[in-house]
Design a binder for these strands. Structure first.
Length: 275
DNA sequence: TGAATTGTTATCGT
DNA sequence: AACGATAACAATTC
């Protein structure tokens, strides 16, 4: 389930390999995931050179040499892999290839996506295409004051709010649970009841968790995303029934906004009365 | 076999 | 009317 750290890891791995390569062709095996359409993307990108690969929220952003942009969102099960020329063995490991981008050095960028929820888009206006996204949690603009104001301007449960990509862009289920735990905040806490010290703790937790996850190349739970090591350093996610590493209380699994949620009932008490 | 999984969007209620 | 909560949806794996 690629979230910001997993996408960042993908970008760091691919950027040096893709920079300078020219796209020789484009083949979509599941055109529904292409915006505006598979033929339109093919017409737009074939013959273009990749000038750089970056990340915005959970999007992989490829800058093309005509100032247009190729965006890939991995959603739940998407993977981007570069197969060297003639590497049939590696390609055979990818059992759900949905799109192919052959490059001018003989290698091929492959988009593998079992559940077909991923998205491939081409745009000439990156600002418009990403207008719906909120602040980058690792960016300079994401400050304690910004977060405190953002929380108090709304009255929403912390977990759904932090998952809202229009608020903070890049967090997903795993890192929201981890961030809230490390800040000792319950996921159902109303956002406008968070005190300044708590907002400061949440701000620090979000940054620390994301940074640690990036250093470990993200979290790998299953076949969806390999190569990460952060799963060995999670404090609550996926640890229902196990002992909290701080207080030894059993971690509890809840359901909040249709999402599996993990909390330590001792470290993360819900305070919901009036002050 | 159906429960679980995520981000987006439509819809409902206050 | 604007906001927040909720449900549905895409499709597959185990």
């Amino acid at each position: 389930m690629p979230e910001l750290p997993e996408v960042e890891s993908v970008v760091r791995r691919l950027a040096p390999l893709l920079r300078g390569r020219r796209i020789g062709a484009f083949e979509s095996l599941w055109p529904r995931q292409c915006t505006p359409s598979a033929p339109a993307i093919r017409r737009a990108i074939v013959g273009r050179r990749v000038e750089g690969v970056t990340r915005r929220a959970k999007f992989v952003v490829m800058a093309l040499d005509d100032r247009s942009w190729l965006l890939v969102h991995l959603r739940m099960s998407g993977r981007l892999e570069l197969a060297a020329h003639g590497d049939a063995e590696f390609s055979a490991q990818l059992r759900h290839v949905r799109a192919r981008f052959p490059l001018d050095d003989g290698s091929t960028l492959l988009f593998d996506d079992a559940r077909k929820f991923g998205r491939i888009a081409h745009t000439r206006d990156l600002v418009a295409a990403t207008r719906h996204l909120g602040i980058e949690p690792l960016g300079d603009e994401f400050t304690i004051d910004w977060l405190l104001r953002g929380l108090r301007d709304r009255s929403r449960q912390l977990k759904p709010l932090l998952l809202d990509q229009a608020f903070v862009a890049g967090l997903g289920n795993i890192y929201v649970d981890e961030s809230l735990h490390r800040a000792r905040l319950h996921p159902l806490t109303p956002s406008d009841r968070v005190r300044r010290e708590q907002a400061a703790a949440l701000h620090a937790s979000i940054r620390a968790v994301l940074s640690a996850a990036i250093e470990r190349n993200g979290t790998s739970f299953d076949w969806i995303y390999p190569d990460g090591q952060m799963q060995d350093h999670l404090l609550v996610y996926g640890r229902a029934g196990e002992a909290c590493k701080t207080c030894r209380t059993a971690i509890v699994a809840l359901r909040i906004g249709q999402r599996g949620t993990h909390v330590c009932p001792e470290c993360q008490r819900l305070h919901t009365g009036k002050k």
